[in-house]
Amino acid sequence: MTNLQSLITNLPGRLGEPVEFRGEVTVMVDRAKILDACRYLKEQCGFDMLTDIAGVDNYGEDPRYAVVYHVYSLPHRCMVRLKVAVPEDDMVVDSVVSVWRTADWHEREAFDMFGIRFRNHPNLKRILMWDGYPYHPLRKDFPLAGMETELPETAVGAGRVEAAPMLGGPFVTTPGAGTAARREPRQADTSAERADKKGAS
């Protein structure tokens, strides 16, 4: 682990001291230097495997978004976490596909779910949602129930995607949001539309 300490000290674009929590090391990296940092880790330090890339939306904070890289070294059997802050007004990060090919789909997912764009990505398009979907659903300001959307023409016909009928979904718990009885969805969902549906069926 002392080796890890020294190589992190030399990491290009490192911001601040590494944070250790539950035996895992997290390093903040300058957004402009993330590609250099990844290259350095792979080529100089033997971090040959990219385990995961995750987008995070810290809604209400500035900068709002973050991209988190979990980088693993097979020869040294250790993991390091790199974190890049992404401001809302310039949501672009350099793609690391040129370093690890596996980053391709992970970055597409982060783009799909959060709208973070990756510069020089070979094929940056949606991966889980369909092409042309207008929202980025893992953003905190996107409701759990979903949003009404046009569904493109498919083999089974076009249509609309409706928001989930349970007004925010079953068993939703937000810390400090009141008692369970108040959150009980059947309690909340007394809209006329639902009553009509019940009457019709």
């Binding site: 997290t26 385990t51 995070v56 988190v68 993991m79 976490r81 937000t174």
Partner: peptide, 28 residues
Amino acid sequence: GEVYFSAENPKGELGFYIVSKGGGAPHR
């Protein structure tokens, strides 16, 4: 805090990356 835990599942490495800001539900 944030943790990443991975287990050797039948299909490969199943990992959970949890970001907590305290409280009963994960932030991410």
